[in-house]
């Protein structure tokens, strides 16, 4: 029995309501693959019954459904042109900032299994080493907050342990040597000094951003594409409010806040387009 239209629509709207994430047309198999087990385990004969249960009971089942539907893939230094902009231009700017201000804060807003925040942490350390430690600010000045809606991916992210396959997806040889320790079980562990820079926390972008930041750099790449237009506008507004006046927002190469808010202006950094709060906005 394949999932019916009615079942698909019910689950879709539930996931959207509770995570903000939109499951696209044609993704029936994703719902079927990931949720049938929960359906059977909870004594439901179909997704209509599961939906009833989800609506009636705010307990752990809801979190499990959202978790199951929001696992995403990731890789190191995802998008080469973006990361060359980060290492050539953004990291040097952040270094200068760290010399002037007590803290530099960075937020990786949908970090999945941790490759993005660790990549940034490695680039910061790399830049410090290149400057031979002369005037380079100490690493402790940098704080990287890494969040994701899925608690399961955060367990993996916080462990900072990756296998050969995960490493082969974008990790540079020189960085592998410097920033990873090989473990007995054929895996690579992120160096504790790099791991210490990153704090992992479960967070739903639908929620209030009060108490977060302000951030000098926010990475929210290829995340908002899964949200409805209404939520996109709301999240762009909240991101704007959590950036420092000269802070930068990085989104996916195919994304733009245009059409959702006029509070950002585009800045070209290296070959990559980033966004910063408009003056006076």
């Amino acid at each position: 029995m394949a999932i019916s239209r009615e079942e698909f629509d019910l689950i879709r709207s539930f996931v959207h309501e509770h995570s903000g994430i939109q499951i696209g047309e044609g993704k029936e198999y994703l719902v079927e693959n990931r949720l049938t087990v929960l359906m059977v385990q909870n004594g439901c004969k179909d997704f209509i019954e599961l939906h009833k249960k989800l609506v009636a009971d705010a307990g752990p089942l809801r979190a499990k459904v959202v978790d199951a539907m929001t696992t995403n893939e990731t890789l190191w230094f995802r998008d080469a042109s973006f990361f060359s902009a980060v290492s050539d231009f953004i990291v040097p700017q952040l270094m200068e900032k760290a010399a002037r201000q007590p803290q530099v804060r960075i937020w990786s807003a949908a970090c999945s299994t941790g490759q993005e925040p660790y990549s940034i942490a490695m680039l910061l350390d790399h830049a410090r080493r290149k400057s031979r430690g002369q005037q380079a600010p100490p690493l402790e000045k940098f704080q990287i907050l890494a969040t994701d809606i899925s608690p399961s991916v955060l367990v993996i992210a916080a462990a900072g342990r990756y296998n050969q396959l995960a490493i082969s997806r974008g990790m540079r040889e020189a960085f592998l040597e410097r920033y990873f320790n090989k473990t007995g079980t054929m895996a690579y562990e992120v160096d504790p000094a790099i791991r210490k820079l990153v704090t992992f926390q479960q967070f739903n972008l639908k929620n209030s951003f009060d108490g977060l930041g302000p951030f000098d750099l926010i990475l929210c790449r290829n995340v908002l594409i899964y949200f409805s237009n209404e939520l996109k506008a709301e999240i762009y507004r909240k991101l704007h409010a959590r950036l420092t006046p000269d802070g930068l927002l990085a989104i996916g190469a195919s994304e733009s806040p245009r059409g959702y808010t006029s509070n950002f202006e585009q800045v070209m950094v290296g070959g990559a387009a980033l966004f910063r709060p408009k003056k006076g906005s």
Binding site: M1, A2, E28, Y29, E32, N33
Partner: peptide, 8 residues
């Protein structure tokens, strides 16, 4: 396997 599952 995927083809079979998707076609239901």
């Amino acid at each position: 396997g995927g083809m079979k599952a998707k076609a239901g």
